[in-house]
Structure formats: structure tokens, C-alpha cells
């Protein structure tokens, strides 16, 4: 497969928000590399900085300090329109709340990223059909409006939309957060299948069941990343001493 070894390279990235109340250090020196074809889960509790990291990885936000490269391209050096172009061509997003256009049909929702890259209409339809077949949505639903579908079907459409531009990276933010456990499992099975087909996938979640589907899981707490082993060691040490895990983390 052509291109750099790592689809995603994050080097000592910080994200600091400035507001009237002061500064919020949401991401504190995160370093992360994701090789092509990996299925990575980033797990963390609410407020840990995982959405902020997701926004940076998705090119929706820029780091305050540090370097983030997607397929070797540093996002800090791109202007807004170049970032939009990068998102249109190299990224696929799956959101917790699906974010489909309710008034548009399934097919039009899936084709939407392609209208911003000027893909010819006939090719768009072919690619949308292909993506919808990959996610296993029956053809009878293609002309339905998206708000006529169930939650699981909507998430399948959202995944098809993320696949349609053949992205280098699929980013999913709590993709099972709005689904029941049976449907969640079906959706995660789909991600696993895509991963087997060579897609690079990063799923952000707070749910251990969801993260168990990944090839690798990293943990995020207070804007810092920990490996599975570091996280386990932290928890065990905290349990032994009865101390707060967040207080221990400062000494690692």
C-alpha cells in the first residue's frame, strides 16, 4: 500500500482553550501513531479530552502546540479551505447522533461528501451504492428519507457516508452511544469487518465493550494518553493505596 507507514502521527500535541473564565488545558502533550490498517480505540471518561482529540484528528480543530500529520501532511500548515479539502478526500466521520440530513434520501446522504470533491454524478451513485452494500443496508431503503430509518439503520448510512470517499482514516465518535446493545454489536462488527478489509479506524468511546473490538486501546484521562498497561498499573496502584487515580497519575 502506498504512502507513509503511519496514517496518523500525533507528536506532543497540546490544546488550550482561552475563555473569559481563563485557560483550559484540554490536551496535554499527546503523542500517538496509528499504522495503516489498525483499528484503534481511544477510551476515556466524560471530560477526559477525547472529543477534543477527535476534533484535532478529524481536522476540525488545530492543536495549540505540537504536530499532527495525516498521511504525512501537517494540519497546522493548512488553511481552512485546505483542511476542508483534506476532510473531504481523506477522512470519514461517524458521529454518535448520526448527523444525517433528515429531508434527504439515504442515497443523497451517502453521496454528500462527494459533492464537495466534484465527483461526477454517475460515479457518485456507483460509489454510494457500493458503500451501502458494504454496510449491509437493503436496497429498498435507498430512496427512503433518513428520518424514516431506525437508529441502527441510520448509523449504517452514516458509516456508508464515511466510506464513500475511500478515506485514509475513519473516525468514529461514540458510534454506539445512541444504540441498544444488540445494535451496538452489529455496528462494531461492521467496523471490525472494515478493519479486516484494511481500513484504518479510530473509535472514540467511553464504553469498555465497544473498545474491546479494537486491535489496540489507548486511554485518555485529563488530556493525557496511557497505554493499556499503564492504565492497568495506575488502577492497581490506586486500589492498593486507596488514593485517587488522578492524584497517582501525576507521578507517572
Amino acid at each position: 500500500m502506498a504512502g507513509p507507514k503511519y496514517v496518523l502521527e500525533v507528536e506532543n500535541v497540546h490544546r488550550i482553550y482561552e475563555s473569559a473564565a481563563g485557560y483550559t488545558h484540554a490536551i496535554r502533550g499527546v503523542t500517538l501513531r496509528v499504522p495503516r490498517g489498525e483499528f484503534l480505540c481511544i477510551m476515556g471518561p466524560s471530560g477526559s479530552g477525547k472529543s477534543t482529540l477527535m476534533n484535532i484528528l478529524g481536522g476540525l480543530d488545530r492543536p495549540t502546540a505540537g504536530v499532527y500529520k495525516l498521511e504525512g501532511v501537517s494540519t497546522s500548515e493548512l488553511d481552512d479551505d485546505e483542511l476542508a479539502e483534506l476532510r473531504a478526500r481523506r477522512l470519514g466521520f461517524v458521529f454518535q447522533r448520526y448527523n444525517l440530513l433528515p429531508r434527504a434520501t439515504v442515497l443523497r446522504n451517502v453521496m454528500m461528501p462527494l459533492i464537495y470533491t466534484n465527483v461526477p454524478v454517475a460515479e457518485r451513485e456507483l460509489r454510494a451504492y457500493k458503500a451501502l452494500r458494504v454496510v449491509g443496508l437493503p436496497e429498498e431503503y435507498y430512496d427512503h428519507r433518513s428520518n424514516e430509518l431506525s437508529g441502527g439503520q441510520m448509523q449504517r448510512v452514516a458509516i456508508a457516508r464515511a466510506l464513500v470517499n475511500d478515506p485514509a482514516l475513519i473516525l468514529a465518535d461514540e458510534p454506539t452511544g445512541a444504540l441498544d446493545s444488540a445494535t451496538s454489536e452489529l455496528v462494531m462488527e461492521l467496523f471490525a469487518k472494515l478493519s479486516e478489509q484494511g481500513k484504518t479506524i479510530v473509535v472514540i468511546t467511553h464504553d469498555p465493550d465497544t473498545s474491546s473490538w479494537g486491535d489496540r486501546t489507548v486511554h485518555i484521562r485529563d488530556g493525557r494518553l496511557f497505554t493499556e498497561e499503564e492504565e492497568r498499573a495506575l488502577i492497581e496502584a490506586a486500589m492498593r493505596s486507596g488514593a485517587d487515580i488522578n492524584a497517582r497519575r501525576g507521578h507517572t
Binding site: 476532510r87 466521520f93 448527523n99 464537495y116
Partner: peptide, 16 residues
Amino acid sequence: IREIGLRKALGAKRFD
């Protein structure tokens, strides 16, 4: 607003 955010996430430029 959410639709605009979605379009931007999917690659819409300011001009679009």
C-alpha cells in the same frame, strides 16, 4: 447550524 457543521466536516469550504 448543525447541518452547516456537518457540511463543513464533510468537506464544504466557506465558498460552498
